[in-house]
């Protein structure tokens, strides 16, 4: 294990622990609210407490504009950010990986043809969040369905838009391994296509699948964030008219960034605390992915001539 991998595993491990047992340690309930109060202290001086309350001993990370404790919100929203992104990534890699291996093994094209740009790569040019935004915008604002149901719907959409790119990556890798001699040997011994995929191709690509999975987690989290900027929050959006305000129903971290975004001039903590939590989650997964690459990269390394 290298340092990068250990650091990444520690960071993501802590985050997953927070998502699992965090709500038990939340200092307040989700619906506890700071009301506007006039307090007179022992010196006889009076002052007004009004939300948003800045970070203090009583509210470690402060409260948002409506007086809800930010730490409580983060602890409760963690499970949506972390488990949903992991779940989506896992499903993408399982389904996309299977499709990719089947396509790669049975396709008639040869692996030599790659390198030149296929016209189909134009499809890479369409921003994914735009497609998801168009699908979700009609149903995501003030929905009847619960936050959990809305998360599942979003997850299904993100799964569908994510599978093709995973399948293409896996297909390209499969086509390279397909040309190896042990595959030919196995074919001439009479192994079926399914048998070869299971016991020759898959073991060769285990490491790639693991790295692909971690990278898909990062991509999913990125999409959560981009969608949140455009008011599509995981678990649905509560919109209040006059003045228009958007609130995350699940307190998912990207959603908290999206709803607190306009606070970076004045009540900065409402903006940067969710941002810091979200960024450290992504950095954690990034370190894991880098660490894995380093660990597996050493296996077949060649040396630079210069």
């Amino acid at each position: 294990m290298n340092k990068t991998l250990i650091a990444g595993l520690l960071l993501t491990g802590v985050m997953i622990l927070v998502a699992l047992i965090g709500p038990l340690f939340a200092p307040y309930e989700l619906d506890d609210q700071v009301k506007i109060e006039y307090i007179v202290d022992e010196n006889g001086e009076g002052y007004v407490i009004a939300p948003p309350v800045a970070p203090s001993a009583k509210y470690p990370l402060g409260t948002d504009q409506n007086g809800y404790d930010l730490l409580t919100k983060l602890l409760n929203g963690a499970k949506y950010s972390i488990f949903l992104s992991i779940g989506i990534a896992l499903a993408r890699v399982l389904i996309g990986g299977l499709i990719g291996m089947l396509l790669g093994y049975f396709s008639k094209e040869s692996a030599q043809a790659k390198g030149g740009s296929s016209i189909w790569s134009v499809l890479n040019g369409i921003p994914i969040f735009l497609i998801v935004w168009l699908i979700m915008i009609g149903i995501s604002i003030n929905p009847h369905a619960s936050a959990f149901e809305m998360s599942i719907i979003l997850a299904a959409v993100l799964l569908i838009v994510g599978v093709p790119s995973v399948a293409t990556t896996v297909k390209a890798k499969t086509m390279v391994i397909r040309e190896k001699q042990f595959v030919t040997a196995s074919q001439s011994l009479g192994a079926s296509g399914w048998k070869i995929i299971r016991s020759h191709l898959f073991p060769q690509m285990k490491e790639s699948f693991l790295i692909l999975f971690v990278q898909e987690v990062i991509l999913t989290l990125t999409l959560f964030g981009q969608l949140a900027l455009f008011h599509i929050f995981v678990g649905g959006t509560t919109m209040y008219p006059d003045p228009t305000e958007y609130h995350s129903r699940s307190n998912e971290w990207a959603g908290l960034i999206g709803s607190g975004r306009m606070n970076f001039y004045v009540n900065t903590w409402i903006f940067y605390i969710p941002l810091a939590a979200y960024a450290s989650l992504i950095i954690g997964f990034h370190l894991v992915s880098k660490g894995l690459e380093k660990r597996y990269g050493k296996m077949f390394a060649k040396y630079s001539h210069l």
Binding site: I218, L221, T222, G225, Q226, L229, I257, R261, F264, F271, L275, Y278, A279, I282, I283, H286
Partner: peptide, 10 residues
């Protein structure tokens, strides 16, 4: 590179 584009902008 590890941060999403919008985080860099923010």
């Amino acid at each position: 590179g590890s941060l999403p584009d919008f985080v860099v902008v923010l």
